[in-house]
């Protein structure tokens, strides 16, 4: 049974995160909307920590471990692939500036 205090705290966290997310994300220019999507995707790969617990905790049945294994795999794909691709994209947005600076020297 979930402790009501914990539930209330969770709702607070959700509401504040939603508010903060709205403030922060509405400032991201359309130029970066694709990297934004792939970045938030990688960040929500944080489900990985739930998957890790499922895959390895003591006293869990084998089925839970196997479900956890698949979840760890897909979440890791998102974290590694998501951050990797986001970085590749953002590097492209930065590189022209660097080149022109070097050319100026």
């Amino acid at each position: 049974m979930m402790n009501p205090a914990v539930l209330i705290a969770s709702v607070y966290v959700f509401a504040l995160a939603a508010f903060l997310g709205y403030q922060v994300i509405s400032r991201v220019p359309p130029l970066l909307h694709t990297p934004l999507m792939s970045a938030t995707n990688a960040i929500s790969g944080i489900s990985l920590i739930g998957s890790l617990v499922l895959a390895g905790s003591a006293g869990y049945p084998e089925l839970a471990h196997i479900l956890g294994f698949v979840a760890v795999t897909t979440a890791t794909i998102n974290v590694v692939g998501g951050f990797g691709i986001t970085d590749r994209m953002l590097k492209m947005f930065g590189k022209r500036k660097v080149e022109t600076k070097e050319a100026a020297k």
Binding site: S10, V13, F14, A17, A18, L20, G21, Y22, V24, I25, L36, M37, T40, N41, I43, S44, I46, S47, I49, G50
Partner: peptide, 11 residues
């Protein structure tokens, strides 16, 4: 998890 998920959801 709540924070990261909410950020993604709202984005």
């Amino acid at each position: 998890l709540i924070i990261a998920g909410t950020l993604d959801g709202f984005s």
